[in-house]
Amino acid sequence: MIELQQVTKRFGMTVAVDAIDLTIETGELCVLVGTSGCGKSTTLRMINRLIPHSAGDIRIDGTAVTDLDPVQLRRRIGYAIQSTGLFPHWTVAQNIGLVPQLLGWPKAKIQARIEELLALLGLDRTEFWTKYPHQLSGGQAQRVGVARALAGDPDILLMDEPFGALDPITRENLQDELLRIQQAVRKTIVFVTHDIDEALKLANRLVIMDQGKIIQQGEPWYVLEQPANAFVENLLGKADRGLKQASLTLVTALMDTLDESSRQNNPPPIDATATLKDAMSAMLWHRTDRLNVVNAQKELIGQLRLDRMLRPKER
């Protein structure tokens, strides 16, 4: 658990973070989102003491970070940034193995951990073990950066705009990869972004900041349905809030069980992992009011109808 109590950061006369309170539960993926200069990156960096806080308390599992040795603290917290921070003259394997080496792991354990992380992030050992950062694409370098952040098996992972410089397709793929990894390893992740769509996709807890303050926090559904003020509403996007809500719900949540007519009509298929937003797009494209939902084996498991999607919310 990470707890921030009345945390403030001043740079001279400028207040960058203004008396914020935030509790991030163990295993939660918490996303800090807001416009440039709102204090989200400063908040992140105060957690691992890259930036000292000016007032208030920051605690990890009940212990104040100021009571911990900063070097030891950072070695037990993974940190991934937009520029990756990879050492240019070190191979992929050397970069990933840095923190385990500093922690004094045996050589065989370090090698096994590097191999495990390369597999977890979809990087072939034979191809990438001896490559250098300049030989990697942006997406590959970012994967190595995430692998390095995970290498010491930290309980906490801090990520500061890690996918911000990537093209949309690579960015979406790495977002999916992060969600898959989080399902597998259940780290406590604090993720900073200025992209509201990325924030909504990733967050268990969404924290919206403006001018150094936390304006609203909660589950993405709650924030979308009950924005605290005009700033939050504008950040979420007034015109497409409905589509953003649809992107948070899988088609399986609203699909109907199969009946004889659904088997006979044979509408276009949609994957069970798709969202209601994907379904709306498919319905418009195919000019249909229903879709057959199929599983990974392409077996028919249900049907999604437009009128079911348009019923009043049951939440």
Score class of each variant (00 low, 15 high):
residue 282 A to S: 01
residue 138 G to P: 04
residue 15 V to I: 15
residue 31 V to P: 13
residue 35 T to W: 01
residue 244 K to A: 13
residue 200 L to P: 15
residue 77 I to W: 11
residue 177 E to D: 10
residue 128 F to A: 07
residue 230 A to M: 00
residue 309 M to A: 03
residue 183 Q to L: 14
residue 14 T to Q: 15
residue 143 R to H: 06
residue 315 R to A: 08
residue 30 C to P: 08
residue 77 I to N: 04
residue 205 R to L: 13
residue 38 C to H: 02
residue 167 D to S: 07
residue 295 N to W: 01
residue 99 V to S: 10
residue 310 L to P: 00
residue 136 L to W: 03
residue 260 E to G: 06
residue 177 E to H: 06
residue 63 T to C: 05
residue 147 A to P: 13
residue 154 P to T: 15
residue 126 T to P: 10
residue 292 N to Y: 05
residue 94 Q to T: 00
residue 26 T to W: 07
residue 71 V to W: 03
residue 114 I to L: 03
residue 103 L to C: 02
residue 244 K to N: 00
residue 118 L to Q: 11
residue 270 I to G: 10
residue 148 R to H: 01
residue 301 I to M: 11
residue 124 D to H: 07
residue 226 Q to D: 04
residue 71 V to T: 10
residue 85 G to T: 03
residue 181 I to M: 15
residue 291 L to C: 15
residue 171 R to Q: 09
residue 31 V to H: 07
residue 308 R to V: 12
residue 259 D to Q: 00
residue 220 P to T: 14
residue 13 M to V: 14
residue 301 I to F: 04
residue 310 L to Y: 03
residue 90 W to Y: 12
residue 142 Q to W: 00
residue 218 G to K: 11
residue 127 E to T: 10
residue 30 C to A: 05
residue 99 V to M: 04
residue 140 Q to R: 04
residue 169 I to G: 10
residue 194 H to G: 07
residue 157 L to W: 06
residue 284 L to Y: 06
residue 253 A to N: 06
residue 62 G to P: 06
residue 42 T to G: 09
residue 135 Q to F: 00
residue 227 P to R: 05
residue 74 R to K: 09
residue 136 L to I: 00
residue 69 D to W: 00
residue 171 R to Y: 08
residue 277 K to N: 01
residue 90 W to G: 08
residue 214 I to A: 12
residue 211 Q to F: 09
residue 41 S to T: 09
residue 6 Q to S: 15
residue 128 F to G: 05
residue 99 V to E: 04
residue 45 R to E: 03
residue 120 L to D: 10
residue 41 S to H: 13
residue 26 T to A: 14
residue 275 T to L: 06
residue 115 E to D: 14
residue 269 P to Q: 07
residue 301 I to T: 02
residue 243 L to Y: 07
residue 157 L to F: 12
residue 149 A to Q: 09
residue 48 N to H: 09
residue 314 E to C: 01
residue 166 L to H: 15
residue 144 V to C: 01
residue 292 N to A: 11
residue 210 D to I: 05
residue 163 F to V: 08
residue 166 L to D: 15
residue 75 R to L: 12
residue 70 P to G: 02
residue 194 H to M: 08
residue 206 L to G: 15
residue 62 G to S: 05
residue 41 S to N: 01
residue 236 L to G: 12
residue 90 W to I: 12
residue 136 L to M: 12
residue 229 N to Q: 07
residue 238 K to S: 10
residue 19 A to N: 06
residue 288 T to Q: 01
residue 266 N to L: 02
residue 180 R to K: 05
residue 183 Q to V: 08
residue 13 M to T: 09
residue 259 D to S: 14
residue 259 D to L: 11
residue 146 V to H: 09
residue 217 Q to W: 12
residue 98 L to F: 03
residue 23 T to M: 13
residue 284 L to W: 00
residue 204 N to F: 10
residue 259 D to N: 15
residue 11 F to A: 14
residue 28 E to A: 05
residue 155 D to F: 02
residue 59 R to N: 02
residue 159 M to Q: 13
residue 115 E to M: 15
residue 285 W to Q: 01
residue 205 R to A: 10
residue 291 L to Y: 12
residue 12 G to Q: 14
residue 12 G to F: 12
residue 73 L to P: 07
residue 126 T to H: 07
residue 179 L to I: 04
residue 222 Y to Q: 15
residue 65 V to I: 12
residue 55 A to E: 05
residue 171 R to N: 03
residue 241 R to Y: 14
residue 282 A to T: 06
residue 120 L to W: 04
residue 306 L to C: 00
residue 268 P to K: 02
